[in-house]
Design a binder for these strands. Structure first.
Length: 479
DNA sequence: ATGTTC
């Protein structure tokens, strides 16, 4: 592979036509982050994606890039709807994994003594862990409604505020869905998991805003220094995982049927114009809607928890979603490519949409400044709020990074944590942790991840998004 | 990420 540095924050993988690349690969990074990336197999995955039929401009990767299934985490791939393909490997197993940030009217010093109570109560009210079952048990009929209506189902059933819909990407629901394409197995897995956090890197966190970078934008977003916020990182649970699994098998057959040559079976795909391609999109959107409803419901329970423990009215607490972003998803979006408007299937796998001010898809609340970009840190480190930019629209199909990105595999992290008590290490840093399993804490320890500040600085410095605020964790619950 | 090996 021919990898060369283009400028301070970009590396290019030259287009190699002999291996079938239609476009080059471009990785946004810096010299220090890139050292490790050059040693792993994720760059080969960037190159592999460049062979997908209909890919435009370049196979992209964000600074949080690491090895994944088919496409790396941190990958962004846009294909022409007219003659391109869609690949489940470009979305990932956790369809619409994403993040929601809630702002409050609370100041950190005032509730410092209550953090422990709040965290324990959050842990009681939000089911955590692999295979955890929720407080809701949905009939098949009701679950179908969730898959069609997403966050709107949650709001209409009393889990949240109507204003929160405009503060969610896609208003919390894709309209074009087909629940009949979600298998009975996926429906079974989903019926008892709505309103559950999950495991792995998923978390709910009580935070304090510790730095403001852009005063005007922060104020417009309702953020100020010393303020308490709550962040929820979760996805579509077993339902989304099953939808992905089901369609990987469909796509394996479709790849052969349509005579598509791919260098890695994990990039199994189908033309967007084919039955298989269209069906995947319709099923993927059901899972995405489930994830939005999931985060909406947990956000509501977080609000109820705070009201109860602090004895505050909704007005005095003032807890509301600032925004909710998807970072594992494929969406049909319109872009101007070489002066021509084109419909593209933008695969963001561990990448966040970052639309600028005055973009049509950005809701009224954020029109003046651009879309809030919510970047969760790994356990025990800072999280960030950024805002989308024109440059992202021009260079990365309106995309930026999604988090820190792993440097150690789960297995390597467990090995490194052997003999240590990660929970104690975090508590010494002033971060309370409540978790289901010790193994998850080992897998998710800070050393398993890249430096989030460095990752965010790359996207900030190269203009893919702009830093608005930094958040410090006070307490975290995990699966 | 995941009823963590259908």
């Amino acid at each position: 592979m021919d990898v060369s540095q283009l400028d301070k924050y970009r590396w290019q993988i030259a287009r190699d036509t002999s291996s079938g690349m239609h476009v080059p690969g471009i990785v946004y990074s810096d010299e220090i982050l890139m050292r490790k990336v050059l040693q792993d197999k994720s760059l080969q995955q960037v190159a592999n994606a460049a062979t997908l039929p209909g890919i435009v401009e370049a196979s992209l990767a964000m600074p949080d890039i690491h090895y994944g299934y088919g496409l790396p985490i941190g990958g962004v791939v846009a294909t022409r709807v007219s003659d391109g393909v869609v690949t489940p490997g470009g979305v990932g197993f956790d369809i619409n994994c994403g993040v929601r940030l809630l702002t409050t009217q609370l100041e950190a010093p005032a509730i410092k003594k209550q953090i422990s109570n709040l965290l324990q109560s959050l842990y009681n009210n939000i089911p955590c862990g692999v295979g955890s079952r929720g407080r809701l048990k949905l009939s098949r009929k009701e679950l179908r409604r969730v898959l069609q209506k997403g966050s709107r189902w949650a709001i209409q059933n009393g889990y949240g505020l109507a204003e929160e819909l405009d503060r969610t990407e896609e208003k919390g629901a894709f309209e074009e869905t087909d629940p009949d394409l979600v298998s009975p197995k996926a429906m079974d897995r989903g019926s008892q998991q709505l309103g559950t956090l999950g495991s792995g890197n998923h978390f709910a966190e009580i935070q304090v805003v510790d730095t403001i970078y852009e005063k005007n934008i922060a104020t417009a977003f309702g953020l100020h220094e010393g303020q308490i916020t709550v962040m929820i990182h979760s996805g579509s649970r077993g339902l989304g995982h099953q939808v992905c699994t089901d369609f990987l098998s469909v796509m394996g057959t479709a790849t052969k049927k349509y005579g598509i040559k791919i260098p890695d079976r994990q990039l199994a795909c189908a033309p967007l114009s084919s039955v298989e391609g269209k069906q995947y999109l319709l099923a993927m959107r059901c899972a995405a809607n489930y994830a939005w409803a999931n985060r909406q419901i947990m956000a509501h329970w977080a609000r109820e928890t705070f009201m109860k423990i602090l004895g505050l009215s909704p007005r005095d607490l003032g807890m509301i979603s600032l925004y909710d972003v998807a970072h594992n998803i494929v969406k049909i979006e319109t872009f101007t490519i070489k002066g021509k408007k084109q419909k593209l299937a933008v695969h963001r796998k561990g990448a966040t949409r970052a639309y600028p001010a005055h973009h049509n898809a950005v809701g009224e609340y954020f029109k003046a400044h651009g879309q809030p970009v919510i970047i969760p840190g790994d356990m025990g480190t800072h999280s960030f709020v950024l805002v989308g930019t024109e440059k992202a629209l021009e260079q990365t199909f309106g995309s930026t990074c999604h988090g820190a990105g792993r440097v150690l595999s789960r297995k390597a992290a467990i090995k490194k944590a052997k003999g240590r008590i990660i929970q104690q290490e975090l508590e010494q840093k002033g971060i309370m942790v409540l978790a289901k399993g010790r193994q998850t804490l080992a897998e998710e320890m800070p050393e398993a991840y890249k430096d989030i500040s460095r990752v965010v600085d790359v996207v900030h410095n190269c203009g893919l998004s702009k830093k608005v605020a930094r958040l410090t964790p006070l307490g975290v619950i995990k699966g």
